[in-house]
Design a protein around this nucleic acid. Structure first.
Lengths: 217, 217
DNA sequence: GCTATTATGTACTAAATAGTCCACAATCTA
DNA sequence: TAGATTGTGGACTATTTAGTACATAATAGC
């Protein structure tokens, strides 16, 4: 079936990396081609426009985040409240690595794109919205379990609280990015318990992992 | 002192409006000139670059928001928890008006700029950060009063909780913008009480004001 | 090895963009 | 009303940008 190529995958990887590091509008087609070591003709061979590429990159980004963040964090092995807190801590940790390696914390790729593009591109908006809905499912499941185990009030509205938690995460990351200071997120961990109305949850210490600076995107 | 002009003010107004409606990178110098009915020579007469203009526009934006949102909302006339809830409701109301008049809710101008530009422009980042700090003062004062009045626990950390609340607002608006659905914010009002750990606060109904569609920016 | 299929290099266009230049217009102050 | 001061119109440049055209290169399957 003709000449093989991984240019498509390289372009997707370049889009994820470059747009996450800068922004949608700041990155040009030429930038993406350069980052992927691909010529314009190859770009337009695989994608019809920047939007087209970014839609594919979003799918890729979500699959990656789901595999690396959500699946490991929201595991049935842990008590539900620990899953949610673990998510918070993992986000914080990744932002710290970014700050150390790049000089800037980049925040949440979906949050970034949402605020920049929701009013500009209906397709992108709808696509990102879809991944937020996917993320919510993980929170909803954890809250459902928490309810069954009695660690949160039986009256708690799972769907609403899941959204509240996701909103809180996005907001915490937003403020931290505005300071370029991921460590300022740590003080806000407790808000997770408050939003869950989890009275008995112990305010566990954040894990002080030795961060491996080299090996993370 | 020479020829008078309001081109400077028109440019600032145009920058506020246009960049809020779209994004920093999506708006060109030509766009700003056109929106302000000003030629390029006038633009560069008053400002050295787009960044320069936007820095001035940010000051203007904050002064306006402080006068129109914060000062009226965080008034000593109201119980402290009502001030914070009033802020939430006013934000929601303004987003609804935007949606009805423009077709899109625009979110928070500072939040938008933070996520788009914090990694790209250190001056802008620092400036927006400063206005977030200003906003925090209003929350801190309300929480301080709430503590004195005993509506929140005496152990509550005022500074941390103020940040948590601001983060929550930003996150709620972010998710709503991602749905282009301001009314979806309403269900998340209760999170404000949770974050304040305000046990006795009544879950008051959101005010159903008849929104005057015409007269709001 | 031949051929259909798929990918890439080079060169190109048209439009958009930031920013400059300078003559001149409008107004203030004396 | 003269002259200094300040703002504006409009044309201009150099660069960047998205997107196209087409010949040619590389491979798969036969």
């Amino acid at each position: 079936m003709g000449r093989p190529s991984d240019a498509r995958e390289r372009l997707i990887a370049a889009a994820r990396e470059t747009i996450y590091a800068h922004s949608y509008e700041a990155v040009t087609v030429d930038d993406l081609c350069a980052a992927a070591h691909v010529t314009k003709s190859s770009f337009y061979h695989f994608f019809s426009s920047k939007q087209d590429l970014v839609l594919a990159a979003l799918e890729s980004q979500w699959r990656w985040i789901e595999a690396v963040i959500f699946k490991p964090t929201f595991t049935d092995d842990l008590p539900p409240q620990e899953r949610i807190l673990g998510f918070f801590d993992l986000m914080l940790e990744r932002q710290q690595v970014q700050k150390e390696t790049e000089g800037h914390m980049r925040g949440c790729p979906f949050g970034n794109l949402t605020l920049e593009m929701s009013t500009q591109d209906e397709l992108l908006r709808a696509r990102v919205e879809h991944f937020f809905e996917e993320a919510l499912k993980y929170f909803e499941r954890a809250l459902h379990d928490a309810k069954e185990e009695g660690v949160v009030p039986a009256t708690l509205d799972v769907k609403v609280t899941a959204r509240a938690l996701l909103a809180y995460f996005e907001g915490v990351i937003l403020l931290a990015k505005g300071r370029n200071d991921p460590s300022s997120m740590a003080a806000l961990r407790g808000g997770v318990f408050s939003l869950m109305q989890c009275q008995n949850c112990v305010e566990r210490e954040a894990p002080q992992k030795q961060v491996a600076v080299a090996s993370v995107t």
